[in-house]
Design a protein around this nucleic acid. Sequence first.
DNA 1: CTGAAAGCGCTAACAA
DNA 2: TTGTTAGCGCTTTCAG
Lengths: 339, 339
Amino acid sequence: MPKRSPAATLDDIALHAQVHKTTASRALDPARRHMISPEVVRRVEAAARALNYRVNRAASALRTGRSGTVGVLLPDITNPVFPPILRGIEQALAAEGFFVMVADTGHEQSPDEAADRMLAQRVEGLIVATSSLRDPLVRRLSQDQAKVVLVNRRDEDGLLPSVVSDDILGMKLAVDHLVAQGHRRIAHLSGPLGLSTGALRKAGFEQALAAHGLQAAGHAECTAYSFEAGEDGARRLLDAGASFSAVVAANDLLALGAIQALQAQGRCVPDDVSVVGHNDMPLMDRVFPALTTVRILHYEMGYRAARLLLDSLRGVPGTTSTVVLRPELVVRGSSAPPA
Amino acid sequence: MPKRSPAATLDDIALHAQVHKTTASRALDPARRHMISPEVVRRVEAAARALNYRVNRAASALRTGRSGTVGVLLPDITNPVFPPILRGIEQALAAEGFFVMVADTGHEQSPDEAADRMLAQRVEGLIVATSSLRDPLVRRLSQDQAKVVLVNRRDEDGLLPSVVSDDILGMKLAVDHLVAQGHRRIAHLSGPLGLSTGALRKAGFEQALAAHGLQAAGHAECTAYSFEAGEDGARRLLDAGASFSAVVAANDLLALGAIQALQAQGRCVPDDVSVVGHNDMPLMDRVFPALTTVRILHYEMGYRAARLLLDSLRGVPGTTSTVVLRPELVVRGSSAPPA
DNA sequence: CTGAAAGCGCTAACAA
DNA sequence: TTGTTAGCGCTTTCAG
């Protein structure tokens, strides 16, 4: 078999184009090309094409300390909220020539370990969607002076910049909608309270009820943002004898699980019980009944998080801010006035 | 603000542990640790911990030519088939200490450009889910002698190793099911015929019909694997005056779009027309009507693709194979005997 | 078992 | 505008 020719280096180009490799390096870098005469640029580019040259980013990363990569820590890419976030991140970064290294830190790997390995890879920054409210990882990372942005999560002390949806407002939209429909006995299916989304949405739910002079007709904390956890949570709510005409879930999957549990007990949605979700994940308009939910701009969330990180890498000051995006209510078939 | 202390290097460790940096390097590498006395290993490890040392992978990549990264090219991560594939890839690679660099090559970036940039990053291999049947990218990559595995796609000439579902069998399962229910006039909504999935599923559909002595009751090619494209395709089928009691779509999103189009024309699914999808994407059991579909093992597909690539990187011979996974039929509410 | 030397490919600093 | 020199941090010889 034909021996694999080793990749061309700057020295090869220099030889071919009859210039010094430094000159070649400059000629190939748009940012430094202006120092070089057009004629030489032309020759170097021709040589680069002829030899199928590609910079060795490993080498330039070593020299410059910039790898052109950013790490993204996700708890579970198969959870439908994350793909659009990742897409937003990826597009914002790709536009600036950066690459995304993803780690799905669900089962095998711990986020800490993954973060460590990524820092060893010399990612220039980290976007974290896995952190809980008081997360030791967050502390460690800020000590390491790593550039970090949280997405769809925030830390308790607000040490780190983050991009989130306005969870308080989101729950207010849901509650106001149900109250306007005439509901008075409204229960809540919360996410894990160790996550900022879980805690904030629960708080938002209670605040919104209080504003109407109401109290929660029941609450169950779900252990994860999954269909099964929602099913289980709703079952616990029912078993506890809670009486409610509507449920606000902290997440669409929880809402779907709740609908399943309600239907299993012979309750009809929305005739007997209204259900409102949160996120407006894809296909929520196609499930049955179509889910009334709070839409979050996931793509935008990812995009903004990446922009925030890029700004911080460029040393733009004042980037320790938190971006809060405004959610909106999407009314569909799963909510209706009480019987 | 406190000046950021530069990351510790092997020299720092060497100094701290009173050994040569070569020794430190060996002591920290499990694969070479055995050359070093336990006492020295202990000292080096202590120093590493004390100084919060992390290898600089950029440096070791430069030295060894191995970056510990693999590139993944996806057409659209928000398409629900890809997250489980990506997850499978990620888990297989993470288990071997590799990282995944993703590029979503939908709009902004072309796959070619992304592949080039990834090769510049010195990824050790590429997993490609974007390629069409005769893709110049594929040719280029094989010329570059880059290590490449296709996933959920194959190339026309079978030059590259790939992991796919058995599309012919999948369509046979769908058709056999409908025929068994009594359907005789069955139409096909294909994916883009430039993709291997589009072409093979169409072929499988026709073969399966022929085996029953039947012919297609109509066919429309959809321009993409999306809800809208399915809606449009079904509309074209109807406008063309095709008469059918069942439709087999090459993809679940196409099937959902088709259901939408059928319902818009006042046809009921499954009473008037049965619809079968392909992929069994998440939530297909929750849409209305719940979708009968051909289940593909996406996670496994990704996992196997990554394993194939890893084997090839390790120089295991005979890795130019194609892995074909067996799909299964999942019968739900969208298919029923014809009226 | 440990150390010395060299060099992967690149770019920043300095010199001409 | 171009060239020279040096060195980023690591690992692989080769020598002790």
